[in-house]
Amino acid sequence: MTTTLPLLANETDLAARAAGEPSAFAIIYDHYFPKVYNYVRYRVRDVDVADEITALVFERVLTGIGSYRPQKAPFGAWLFSIARNAVHDHHRSTSRHPWLPLDLIAAHPAADPLPEEAVEQKDASARLLQAVRQLAPREQDLIALKFASGLENKEIAKVVGLSESHVGVILFRALRRLRNLLGDKENSHE
Protein backbone atom coordinates (compact mmCIF):
# COMPACT_ATOMS: atom_id res chain seq x y z
CA MET A 1 0.00 0.00 0.00
CA THR A 2 2.88 2.33 0.62
CA THR A 3 3.76 4.72 -2.18
CA THR A 4 7.46 4.54 -1.60
CA LEU A 5 9.88 2.61 -3.69
CA PRO A 6 13.56 2.12 -3.03
CA LEU A 7 15.79 4.65 -4.75
CA LEU A 8 17.17 3.53 -8.05
CA ALA A 9 20.72 2.48 -7.31
CA ASN A 10 22.21 3.46 -10.66
CA GLU A 11 19.87 6.29 -11.49
CA THR A 12 22.44 8.57 -13.11
CA ASP A 13 23.67 5.82 -15.37
CA LEU A 14 20.11 4.83 -16.25
CA ALA A 15 19.22 8.42 -17.07
CA ALA A 16 22.25 8.70 -19.34
CA ARG A 17 21.23 5.61 -21.25
CA ALA A 18 17.47 6.10 -21.21
CA ALA A 19 17.28 8.45 -24.19
CA GLY A 20 18.30 5.69 -26.57
CA GLU A 21 17.82 2.51 -24.60
CA PRO A 22 14.26 1.34 -24.00
CA SER A 23 15.21 -1.03 -21.19
CA ALA A 24 16.84 1.79 -19.20
CA PHE A 25 13.88 4.09 -19.72
CA ALA A 26 11.52 1.29 -18.71
CA ILE A 27 13.22 0.96 -15.32
CA ILE A 28 12.91 4.69 -14.72
CA TYR A 29 9.31 4.68 -15.87
CA ASP A 30 8.32 1.76 -13.65
CA HIS A 31 9.99 3.36 -10.67
CA TYR A 32 8.60 6.86 -11.12
CA PHE A 33 5.19 6.35 -12.66
CA PRO A 34 3.36 5.78 -9.32
CA LYS A 35 5.16 8.72 -7.75
CA VAL A 36 4.38 11.10 -10.58
CA TYR A 37 0.81 9.92 -10.85
CA ASN A 38 0.25 10.37 -7.13
CA TYR A 39 1.78 13.82 -7.23
CA VAL A 40 -0.46 14.86 -10.11
CA ARG A 41 -3.49 13.22 -8.57
CA TYR A 42 -3.07 15.25 -5.40
CA ARG A 43 -3.07 18.38 -7.52
CA VAL A 44 -6.00 17.76 -9.89
CA ARG A 45 -9.47 16.50 -9.24
CA ASP A 46 -10.13 14.51 -12.37
CA VAL A 47 -8.69 11.04 -12.90
CA ASP A 48 -8.57 11.47 -16.68
CA VAL A 49 -6.76 14.78 -16.36
CA ALA A 50 -4.30 13.15 -13.97
CA ASP A 51 -3.64 10.51 -16.60
CA GLU A 52 -3.19 13.11 -19.31
CA ILE A 53 -0.80 15.21 -17.26
CA THR A 54 1.17 12.17 -16.19
CA ALA A 55 1.46 11.16 -19.84
CA LEU A 56 2.67 14.63 -20.68
CA VAL A 57 5.25 14.52 -17.91
CA PHE A 58 6.76 11.30 -19.22
CA GLU A 59 6.64 12.63 -22.75
CA ARG A 60 8.70 15.58 -21.54
CA VAL A 61 11.00 13.32 -19.58
CA LEU A 62 11.64 11.26 -22.67
CA THR A 63 12.41 14.23 -24.86
CA GLY A 64 14.48 15.96 -22.19
CA ILE A 65 16.35 13.13 -20.54
CA GLY A 66 19.25 13.50 -22.95
CA SER A 67 19.91 16.95 -21.54
CA TYR A 68 19.60 15.97 -17.89
CA ARG A 69 22.74 17.00 -15.95
CA PRO A 70 23.22 14.97 -12.75
CA GLN A 71 25.61 17.56 -11.34
CA LYS A 72 22.80 20.12 -11.29
CA ALA A 73 20.11 18.20 -9.45
CA PRO A 74 19.18 14.69 -8.41
CA PHE A 75 17.18 12.95 -11.10
CA GLY A 76 14.05 12.86 -8.97
CA ALA A 77 14.20 16.60 -8.39
CA TRP A 78 14.62 17.20 -12.13
CA LEU A 79 11.72 14.91 -12.94
CA PHE A 80 9.42 16.46 -10.38
CA SER A 81 10.28 19.92 -11.64
CA ILE A 82 8.83 18.79 -14.94
CA ALA A 83 5.79 17.32 -13.21
CA ARG A 84 5.26 20.49 -11.23
CA ASN A 85 5.50 22.64 -14.35
CA ALA A 86 3.00 20.41 -16.09
CA VAL A 87 0.53 20.75 -13.25
CA HIS A 88 1.03 24.51 -13.16
CA ASP A 89 0.45 24.66 -16.90
CA HIS A 90 -2.78 22.79 -16.39
CA HIS A 91 -3.95 25.11 -13.66
CA ARG A 92 -3.11 28.12 -15.80
CA SER A 93 -5.05 26.88 -18.77
CA THR A 94 -8.78 27.45 -18.96
CA SER A 95 -9.53 24.50 -21.16
CA ARG A 96 -8.34 20.97 -21.46
CA HIS A 97 -4.95 20.70 -23.11
CA PRO A 98 -5.35 20.61 -26.86
CA TRP A 99 -1.63 20.04 -27.09
CA LEU A 100 -1.46 16.93 -24.92
CA PRO A 101 -0.14 13.79 -26.59
CA LEU A 102 -3.46 12.04 -26.35
CA ASP A 103 -2.49 9.67 -29.11
CA LEU A 104 -0.16 8.08 -26.61
CA ILE A 105 -3.14 7.17 -24.51
CA ALA A 106 -5.70 6.36 -27.16
CA ALA A 107 -3.53 4.02 -29.16
CA HIS A 108 -3.32 1.41 -26.45
CA PRO A 109 -6.24 1.49 -24.05
CA ALA A 110 -5.60 -0.27 -20.79
CA ALA A 111 -6.93 -3.79 -20.65
CA ASP A 112 -8.45 -3.39 -17.24
CA PRO A 113 -9.41 0.22 -16.67
CA LEU A 114 -10.19 1.27 -13.17
CA PRO A 115 -13.08 3.72 -13.10
CA GLU A 116 -12.72 6.88 -11.11
CA GLU A 117 -15.61 5.94 -8.89
CA ALA A 118 -13.85 2.78 -7.80
CA VAL A 119 -11.23 4.87 -6.13
CA GLU A 120 -13.26 7.86 -5.05
CA GLN A 121 -15.80 5.60 -3.35
CA LYS A 122 -13.14 4.41 -1.01
CA ASP A 123 -14.14 6.70 1.79
CA ALA A 124 -10.80 7.11 3.45
CA SER A 125 -9.05 7.91 0.21
CA ALA A 126 -11.73 10.31 -0.93
CA ARG A 127 -11.77 12.10 2.40
CA LEU A 128 -8.03 12.43 2.41
CA LEU A 129 -8.00 13.92 -1.08
CA GLN A 130 -10.83 16.23 -0.20
CA ALA A 131 -9.00 17.43 2.88
CA VAL A 132 -5.75 17.98 1.00
CA ARG A 133 -7.61 20.14 -1.49
CA GLN A 134 -8.78 22.41 1.27
CA LEU A 135 -5.20 23.38 2.00
CA ALA A 136 -3.55 26.37 0.40
CA PRO A 137 -2.13 25.64 -3.06
CA ARG A 138 1.45 25.86 -1.82
CA GLU A 139 0.68 23.46 1.02
CA GLN A 140 -0.95 21.06 -1.43
CA ASP A 141 2.08 21.29 -3.66
CA LEU A 142 4.53 20.54 -0.87
CA ILE A 143 2.49 17.69 0.55
CA ALA A 144 2.10 16.17 -2.90
CA LEU A 145 5.82 16.52 -3.55
CA LYS A 146 6.77 15.10 -0.18
CA PHE A 147 4.51 12.10 -0.09
CA ALA A 148 4.35 11.25 -3.77
CA SER A 149 7.96 11.82 -4.71
CA GLY A 150 9.64 10.96 -1.44
CA LEU A 151 12.13 13.77 -2.06
CA GLU A 152 14.05 15.12 0.88
CA ASN A 153 13.13 18.60 2.06
CA LYS A 154 16.34 20.05 0.65
CA GLU A 155 15.50 18.62 -2.78
CA ILE A 156 11.95 19.91 -2.58
CA ALA A 157 13.39 23.28 -1.64
CA LYS A 158 15.30 23.36 -4.92
CA VAL A 159 12.25 22.36 -6.91
CA VAL A 160 9.97 25.00 -5.42
CA GLY A 161 12.52 27.75 -4.79
CA LEU A 162 12.19 27.94 -1.00
CA SER A 163 14.70 27.33 1.77
CA GLU A 164 14.87 23.86 3.26
CA SER A 165 13.75 25.05 6.68
CA HIS A 166 10.84 26.95 5.13
CA VAL A 167 9.71 23.79 3.36
CA GLY A 168 9.89 21.86 6.63
CA VAL A 169 7.86 24.41 8.56
CA ILE A 170 5.20 24.70 5.85
CA LEU A 171 4.90 20.92 5.74
CA PHE A 172 4.62 20.73 9.51
CA ARG A 173 1.86 23.33 9.63
CA ALA A 174 0.07 21.85 6.63
CA LEU A 175 0.04 18.37 8.14
CA ARG A 176 -1.34 19.67 11.43
CA ARG A 177 -4.04 21.47 9.55
CA LEU A 178 -4.75 18.43 7.43
CA ARG A 179 -5.18 16.30 10.53
CA ASN A 180 -7.63 18.81 11.91
CA LEU A 181 -9.55 18.85 8.65
CA LEU A 182 -9.71 15.08 8.64
CA GLY A 183 -10.84 15.12 12.26
CA ASP A 184 -13.63 17.50 11.37
CA LYS A 185 -14.72 15.25 8.54
CA GLU A 186 -14.57 12.15 10.68
CA ASN A 187 -16.77 13.92 13.21
CA SER A 188 -19.18 15.00 10.53
CA HIS A 189 -19.44 11.39 9.32
CA GLU A 190 -20.36 10.13 12.74
Partner: peptide
Amino acid sequence: MLAQHDMSPESRVRKSLRQ
Protein backbone atom coordinates in the same frame (compact mmCIF):
# COMPACT_ATOMS: atom_id res chain seq x y z
CA MET B 1 -2.23 8.51 6.34
CA LEU B 2 -0.52 10.16 3.39
CA ALA B 3 2.37 7.73 3.43
CA GLN B 4 -0.04 4.85 3.08
CA HIS B 5 -2.05 6.46 0.33
CA ASP B 6 -1.40 5.23 -3.20
CA MET B 7 -3.72 6.31 -6.01
CA SER B 8 -1.66 5.07 -8.94
CA PRO B 9 -3.62 1.81 -9.45
CA GLU B 10 -6.51 3.93 -10.73
CA SER B 11 -4.48 5.12 -13.72
CA ARG B 12 -5.80 3.88 -17.04
CA VAL B 13 -2.76 4.72 -19.10
CA ARG B 14 0.15 3.23 -17.24
CA LYS B 15 0.67 0.24 -19.52
CA SER B 16 -0.22 1.88 -22.81
CA LEU B 17 1.89 4.95 -22.12
CA ARG B 18 4.86 2.77 -21.23
CA GLN B 19 4.51 0.83 -24.44
